[in-house]
Simulated assay, not measured.
Amino acid sequence: MKNLLRQITAAGRDENFLNLVHILEGVISKVLSIAMLIVIIVSVVDLAILLSKELFSEPVGFFDTTLIELFGLFLNILIALELLENISAYLKKHIIQVELVIVTSLIAVARKLIILDLTKTSGIQLIGLAIAIFALSVSYWIVRRSNTRQSP
């Protein structure tokens, strides 16, 4: 009984607990990477099927789906690739790279802007989108500038 109590007490020490957290972070990051790869593969296959249907249906060479919707699908895949890059960078360096996160956010906002239907968008939504773009741009500029100063 005393042995079990000592083991429980030892497992509760800060360094042991932090080791457990570090191991779990690694496992979860790897599971997220695999899940993201599956999402990317399924998205690319879905896009390929949609493109082949659109290209080989009547009338030949014209899209029933608007190009804006197709661009949105391409950008979805690009965003997923950026998220995978964020996870991979975390696995390599065990830090979250703020610059990558901001770039991914900018791509997501750019996607939103590209596929935006202005007939269904209110003025306040446009103002919010403009503020988000401005804030992300300034954030990226600040992070990029501080990173270039730190580099030798």
Rank of each mutant, 00 (worst) to 15 (best):
N3E: 13
N3D: 11
L4P: 08
R6Q: 12
R6I: 07
I8L: 15
T9M: 12
T9N: 12
A11P: 00
A11I: 07
R13T: 15
D14T: 11
D14A: 08
N16K: 03
F17V: 13
H22P: 00
I23C: 13
L24K: 05
E25V: 03
G26C: 11
I28G: 06
S29C: 07
K30E: 01
L32Q: 04
L32K: 05
A35I: 08
L37Y: 15
V39G: 05
V39P: 01
I40V: 10
I40Y: 06
I40C: 03
I41S: 10
L47R: 00
L47A: 08
L47V: 02
I49S: 01
L55G: 01
F56K: 02
F56V: 07
F56M: 06
S57H: 08
E58V: 06
E58W: 13
D64I: 03
D64S: 08
D64Q: 10
T65W: 04
L67V: 10
L67Y: 04
I68D: 06
L70N: 04
F71Y: 13
L73V: 04
N76M: 02
N76S: 11
L78C: 13
L78E: 14
I79M: 10
A80P: 06
L81R: 07
N86K: 05
A89T: 13
K92C: 07
K92R: 15
K93E: 13
K93S: 11
I95M: 10
L100M: 07
V101H: 05
V103W: 06
T104R: 00
S105A: 15
L106I: 15
I107E: 08
A108S: 09
A108G: 10
R111G: 02
I114F: 09
I115K: 01
L116Q: 06
D117P: 08
L118H: 12
T119A: 10
K120W: 03
G123R: 11
L126C: 09
L126I: 10
I127Y: 08
A130F: 13
A132Y: 01
A132W: 03
A132M: 11
F134R: 00
L136I: 01
L136P: 00
W141C: 07
W141N: 08
I142Y: 13
R145K: 15
N147M: 15
N147L: 11
R149Q: 14
Q150K: 05
Q150P: 01
P152F: 10
